[in-house]
């Protein structure tokens, strides 16, 4: 096969993998928007907070140690233990559930019935607050995250495909971490679909998403559902934080991965879980293929803006996104 075709195929596959990572972030947005109509600006920062909390727990770091030491004149930074990754993940999920409860209790409960823009502004405030709290709680240095996920290209795939082209073709490069992310994303989507279809809480969540006043009239607790939704979004943020944090270390920039999710949401729709996945794949493949074919002609660095151009193109023809619900407001 011609090398150029093989290279394009390699870029295509890596685009799919990148798209899965974008979709992981987008999923959190979709969950909250679907259940409450809130565009949660803080979703990226939640991924940062979750990943920082995970590393902090794993390393036995004392939260708010700088403040504690400054107030009490102590020099305590670590508890002196290391927590296994699996247990730390469970504890972090617990923290994210606690965070969801606090958000509902202190912010969202007071804003029921407000305009969506007010709720959106509240999440902007929440994002900046959480960013500051993350720094205060765990420090702003870059932290290595190792929960045992494999990294680097798959030698097996490289070896198996090396003979497909000329001697200039090394075989396909597929990152092991990206493959794990794909499996995890698939499991997550299946899990979310099963949860929303076959559990009482999941059905209640869907009822609230369809019509929260009707859901209230049949005895569904809106407060509980919001805590549940924010908890699930927190869990999704943790998964995204683990995947992205393993790649680059856990640091402030993790919060900026939300920027990668926006075109995915525009394309896939804000209310569809499969839409987030398909949107992620289209954005991932589209931006990578554009960079591969057109990038060299225009000086490269096309991915960031091209993802938005692609999303805008879809918006022009289908404003609700590929899988989004068409909203018809009668006046």
């Amino acid at each position: 096969m011609p090398d150029q075709f093989l290279f394009a195929t390699e870029v295509f596959i890596n685009g799919l993998m990148a798209g899965v990572l974008y979709a992981l972030v987008a999923l959190g947005f979709v969950l909250i928007y679907k259940a409450s109509g809130i565009f949660n600006y803080a979703q990226g920062v939640m991924a940062l907070f979750a990943a920082m909390t995970l590393v902090g727990i794993m390393n036995g770091q004392v939260p708010f140690s700088h403040i504690i030491n400054a107030v009490f004149g102590t020099e305590i930074h670590h508890f002196g233990w290391h927590v296994p990754a699996f247990l730390a993940i469970i504890l972090t999920v617990g923290v994210m559930v606690g965070f969801a409860w606090l958000v509902q209790r202190l912010v969202m409960r007071h804003l029921v019935g407000q305009e969506p823009i007010i709720l959106f502004m509240a999440t902007i405030g929440l994002a900046y607050f959480l960013e500051g709290v993350s720094d205060l709680m765990w420090g702003s240095e870059i932290k290595k995250l190792d929960v045992g996920l494999p990294q680097g290209g798959s030698f097996w795939i490289e070896d198996m495909t090396a003979g497909l082209g000329s001697e200039n073709f090394y075989g396909f490069f597929i990152d092991n971490l990206d493959m794990v992310a794909t499996i995890v994303a698939a499991l997550l989507v299946v899990g979310l679909v099963l949860f929303s279809q076959y559990t009482k809480q999941g059905r209640a969540m869907r009822a609230v998403a369809d019509d929260h006043q009707a859901a209230l009239s049949v005895g569904i607790s809106l407060n509980f559902i919001w805590v549940l939704v924010w908890s699930v979004a927190g869990f999704v943020a943790l998964v995204a934080g683990i995947m992205w944090g393993t790649k680059s270390g856990v640091q402030f920039s993790l919060s900026l991965i939300a920027l990668k999710a926006l075109p995915v949401l525009m394309l896939g729709g804000f209310t569809s879980i499969p839409g987030a996945i398909v949107g992620g794949l289209i954005i991932g493949v589209g931006e990578k293929m554009f960079e591969f074919w057109i990038g060299p002609l225009v000086g490269g660095a096309t991915e960031n803006w091209f993802a938005y151009v692609l999303a805008l193109l879809f918006l022009v023809f289908r404003p609700q996104g590929l899988f989004g619900e068409k909203i018809i407001e009668r006046v």
Binding site: V11, A18, L254, K288, G295, E303
Partner: peptide, 9 residues
């Protein structure tokens, strides 16, 4: 610079 797959490929 969180995503550099294209450059390194």
């Amino acid at each position: 610079g969180q995503e550099q797959k294209s450059q390194w490929l």
